[in-house]
């Protein structure tokens, strides 16, 4: 078995195991930490797929910014204890059954979508910064600029929502 398959199985195991722990763990701070582990495993998958730029951006944006934001909110709301009241079991069973059926449906749908291997790509350097930057600033210039407006709107919205009311 080639070494890449070992790496794939290891990263897959880490990602799925810590994703399950995100859902199961009662403490929100532990959930955030397990989600960071999942994101690192996904960054390893990106590296395995030769998408170095996206792996770096993924680590910086998700593990560096978004998860820190989650931790700040949890600490500001003082939620770092198990406050979740005990619920009835019927909604939990319904949730497990519904998502399990959903997963089975998706797998049954996609397992016959493409038999065997796709044709091997000729260019294996498409994930590098140089090539991705050329594509981004030539073909996707307008969406890139529009996303800056989106960020401005999100920033104004976040500041407006979280400020105290004056009167």
């Amino acid at each position: 078995m080639p070494i890449t398959q070992y790496i794939f199985f290891f990263l897959t195991f880490v990602a799925i195991f810590s994703a399950i722990l995100v859902v199961i763990d009662k403490n929100p701070v532990h959930s955030v930490l397990y989600l960071i582990v999942t994101f690192f495993a996904l960054a390893g998958h990106y590296l395995l797929l030769n998408a170095q730029f996206l792996a770096a951006v993924h680590i910086i944006v998700y593990a560096g910014a978004i998860m820190v934001l989650f931790l700040y909110v949890i600490m500001m709301l003082n939620l770092n204890k198990e406050i979740e009241p005990h619920k009835k079991n019927i909604p939990k069973f319904a949730a497990v059954i519904a998502s399990g059926v959903f997963m089975l449906c998706l797998i049954a749908l996609l397992t016959n979508a493409q038999k065997g291997m796709l044709p091997a790509a000729q260019n294996e350097n498409i994930g590098l910064v140089e090539n991705l930057g050329k594509v981004l600033f030539r073909e996707y210039m307008l969406p890139f600029e529009v996303s800056s407006i989106l960020f401005l709107a999100a920033m104004v919205g976040a500041v407006f929502l979280s400020k105290k009311e004056i009167n």
Partner: peptide, 10 residues
């Protein structure tokens, strides 16, 4: 990666 198209990564 499998199709060799960088649009997906963008």
């Amino acid at each position: 990666r499998y199709l060799g198209d960088s649009g997906g990564q963008v």
